[in-house]
Design a binder for these strands. Sequence first.
DNA 1: ATACTCCGATTTATCTGATTAATCATAATT
DNA 2: AATTATGATTAATCAGATAAATCGGAGTAT
Lengths: 224, 224
Amino acid sequence: MVTRERKSPNISEFMRYLATNEEVENGLPSLKQLSLDLGVSVASLREQLEVARALGLVEVKPRLGTRRKDYSFAPAIRQSLGYALALNNEHFRKYSELRNHVESAFWYEAVELLTEQDKNELQNLITRAFEKLQGARIQVPHEEHRQLHLTIFSRLENPFVTGILEAYWDAYENVGLNVFTGGYEYLQEVWQYHRAMVDAICEGKNEDGYNALIAHADLLYHRP
Amino acid sequence: MVTRERKSPNISEFMRYLATNEEVENGLPSLKQLSLDLGVSVASLREQLEVARALGLVEVKPRLGTRRKDYSFAPAIRQSLGYALALNNEHFRKYSELRNHVESAFWYEAVELLTEQDKNELQNLITRAFEKLQGARIQVPHEEHRQLHLTIFSRLENPFVTGILEAYWDAYENVGLNVFTGGYEYLQEVWQYHRAMVDAICEGKNEDGYNALIAHADLLYHRP
DNA sequence: ATACTCCGATTTATCTGATTAATCATAATT
DNA sequence: AATTATGATTAATCAGATAAATCGGAGTAT
């Protein structure tokens, strides 16, 4: 029998407090007060607080104290992935594989949920990107690239999917791909695919869009 | 122009130290020493240390001090997901959607990589599960269920994929699904699919296996 | 030799309290 | 009206003291 080692570092008292006390909206008590409430010293409390902050669960400033933020999955990934990249840049490739598979797996559901407004926004992003590409002083349309992908999957309203996709772009910038690109022809080609994707979406040809997504992901994965 | 708010809470000094100093193998300096090295107080250092521990990057014990652990993605997810579940149990459903899509998206690649030994292990798991199900005193083959899924995708050697799948099972237990099941017939049906999956894998009929995976995921997703 | 118990050294864990720095609301000033 | 001081509040950082945990090894019995 395989007795898997039980490693469940459950969430801290502070995080549980944060999750379960409704009255924490518009501000938590000061650290001094909280340390009394929870029965731990300020120093210990701060250790727990730091974890919550690293996970993006709270925002804390002098004078204003601690506020709970809306839940987001991305910061947790950022921290762990940021460390993994510092350990070894090859981890970016592995994470890209995950991200690419997530995008392709959710493609049909995601585009089915897009509104007309979303589709307009996608068209605008394409337009802006080509303006940057074809301008006298060519620029890398990085922000448009990011927004394009995130917008496509935004209507899933799945914080975990969103988090994975968001964290990808931070890692992308982290390893410097937003500036050092594979050359101009490469950029052109990538954005041809983007245009094809968006056109397909707007015409309801979801399978064509899917194929463009796959092809363009290959392109980026095997970037020079 | 969309000026996305720049929120990059980069990894801590301590985590960077942890990632980049090779000599930390077989033990970091004591906290007192490290606080001198890094030029911060022990209290501040402990705040950073606590984050690293929450992310599962280090193991720290009195007398032995701090040791770096092999990288794993799962703890970061566990923390954030554990909090999300404490906020709202419905988050489990959303996370399940992610996990199910990840499994289906990686299916073909994953099973292609399985060794004969892996396939034997899968068969063993099926055997053990049915023993539990058909025993005089029926048991829920939870551990076998977990191992089955993790084994199938283990050869991808992708720590991020693995992490997502591992964290799923912790959440699964977290919300109590490992004990409160949908009834005996339901369990039987699930494991019929598992058997079909493994048989298909062993016979190289990967598409049949894929279909079984999808069908059985639906079953669990729409569990009573 | 083997297993067990006890002891001491090391390190983390926790707490207290003091000082510094950041932040914002408000009042004062231009 | 806009800008600039001011003060109150809170987090940030630090130092140091005490407690608790853990392990290696010495000692002891079998």
